[in-house]
Every structure is written in structure tokens, then in C-alpha cells.
Amino acid sequence: MTTLTWNQARALPKAEVHLHLEGCFDLADLLLLAREAGAPLPGPAATLFDTSTHTVERDPDGAAVKGMGVGTFLQFLDWEGSLVRTYDQLFVAGYRAAARESASGVRYADIIVNPTHWGAWEGRLELFLRAITDGFEAAAKDGLCETSLCVSLLRQQSGESALEVVKTMIDAEIPRVVALSIDGDETHAGDTNERFSPAFTLARDAGFRRTVHTGESSGPQSVWGAIDLLHAERIDHGVRSIEDPDLVKELVDRQIPLDICPRSNVEGLHIYPSLAEHPIEALREAGVMVSINTDDPAPMSVRLEDDYVDCANAFGWSIETVKELAANSVNASFAAAAIKQEILDELGSFEA
């Protein structure tokens, strides 16, 4: 076993495929946006990201979900999004997200955005998406990492509004908008796969990729639904797949990746009491294509290289295993084939 250092983890050629734009606002970003908007803060400035002051929730099985809780966190994201009201602010948000990724050694990122959190942009979805991806484009021209956008539905929205989102994506023809996603509170929304199946089918038929947040606060059955009804090519989280051996086999046989966010699972929703008890290693050993991601890095105070180091230490990973995880991140991404190959070639010659 070789100990992975922070510098090695940063230098490692890799992708990130489970990252929310809403989770990329640093504390200073939010305070300055609130000042510019003349909007009140939801709590003391110095402790906006302190989850200890928020309500503890529970999942349907009664398991504790400590910290901020999904419902409270989604309300916080709504407040964040309400502060962003101009094209320039969205452009900067996209540019800064790409810069954040590049600072962690990421070569390519699929970044998720959920328009329902950005209240000022209701009815202006195309301009909203163009402003963000214009920021991505400028970042790439300045030598930062390549980025694409996954447009996410919210579980609480209607099937009709979901179809309208996909139709706008189709009509707009924005090159860096590559996928349809869905996220939100699984615990309270229940099984929504059937409701959103028409939207995901339309997206598939139009050539968009599909990724689904599931199998975190909900169990394995929700992952089955995402695969069968939403045509999911990738599962965001999906950690509770480990509870169903048949599902694990399905994921392995079809090579459906799980985009896992270890610290988010442990320190965010407390799905697992410690990293050592997280199933990422058991899933990897079973042959599932797993990758490491940050989810919402700013409010969770996490960097991607930290997660690589922490997991390598917790599970005794060799450098070769770490490179395997990095390759998984690239292969699971929605990057163009040429970009994937370029990163994989760089990874192949990487020496720690």
C-alpha cells in the first residue's frame, strides 16, 4: 500500500460528475450577492454553513438524518438562487465553478443545475442555461477545465413542467447542455419515477444523456425504478444499492456507474456513521463502477482531493486503485470521446 498525499490527489488527472452549481457558492459569494440584492441573510453571516443549528430529520424507516436535512438544505438553495438575478451573475457562477474544479486538478466536469432553485429566472430557462454555459465556455478558453451542464428536475414538480424543461433543452440546442437529471427530497416526494418517465424518454430520444439522484435516503427499489423507467445511464449516489445483491449484479453487468459523494453521505445526511462504514469499497470490490465526487463542496467545506485522500486512507487503497477510481470518473462522464481519451492517456502516464 502506498499512502496518497494531498498533492498527488490534486495532480491526479480526473473528472467530477456529481457536482451541483448551487453547491459551489462560497460564503463570500453569498454575502456579496445578498449585499448587492439588498436581501436579508437566513442566519448569522459567519455561520451560514453551520449545519448544527438546523433541524434533524428522519427517513421513512426511522433512521436519523442528522445535520441540515434535505428539506432545510433545499430551502437554503432556494435562498441562494434568489440572489442571482442577472446574466453577468450567472456567467460568473459558471466561470467560478470551472475554476473551482480546475483548482482541484479536475480536467472535465459534469455540473448539475436545478432551475427550480433560481426563482428570478422562472420563465427564462433558455437564457438561464446560456448564461451559465457562456461562463463555462469562457473558462475553457482561459485554460480551465472543460465543463458541461446537466439540467435537473425537482421531484416535487409536475410531469408537465418536466416535459416543458426538456422541450426547451431541445429547442435551444446549447452545445454544453448535455443531460437531464433529477434531484430533490426523496424522503417526502416518494416514488416519482413513473411521473417523470415521459420527460426522460423524450430526453433520451432527443440524444440527451440521463443521470438520476437516487438510492441515498431512498432504498434500492428507487434505483431499479431509475434504470427501468428513467433510462438512467448513471446514478448519482446510489449507495444503498449495496442492500440488494441482484441490483449490484445489474449495475455490474450493465456497467451503470454510481457517482458517489462519500463526505456528503457521512457528514451531510449521515446515511453512514463514518467513512470506514461507507459501502463505496464494498461496491468497488463487487465490480461496480464507482467514482468519487463532492456533491455540494462549498457548504460542506470539502475539496475533491480531500475525498480521494480520505478514502485512500480509510480503505487502504494503492495508487493503482486510486487511478482506477479516477479512470471510472472519466468513463462515467458525459465528455466527448476525444476529451475522455486525452484524460485517460494522461492518467495512464501518471506517476505518484
Rank of each mutant, 00 (worst) to 15 (best):
D88M: 08
T3C: 13
W118G: 01
L30H: 07
L127N: 13
L21D: 02
R96P: 03
A98E: 08
F91P: 11
Q75A: 15
F76C: 02
D78W: 12
P42Y: 13
A99C: 14
L33P: 04
T5L: 14
P44Y: 07
T55K: 11
L33Y: 12
E16M: 09
T2A: 15
T55A: 13
L90F: 04
F73A: 09
W6L: 15
A46L: 03
E101Y: 10
R85V: 08
V65G: 14
P44H: 01
A9K: 01
Q8Y: 11
D50V: 03
T86Y: 07
L41F: 06
E126K: 04
G71D: 15
E57V: 15
A39W: 06
L77Q: 06
R58V: 15
R85E: 07
Q8C: 10
A93S: 10
H117T: 00
L31T: 06
H54K: 09
S82Y: 08
W118R: 02
D78H: 14
G94T: 03
F128M: 03
D88V: 09
G43H: 02
A109T: 03
L12A: 11
T2E: 13
V106P: 00
R35S: 15
F128V: 01
L48R: 01
Y108I: 06
G43P: 05
R10C: 12
L4W: 10
E16Y: 10
L125S: 05
G69E: 06
L4D: 08
C24K: 06
W118M: 05
L12E: 09
L27D: 00
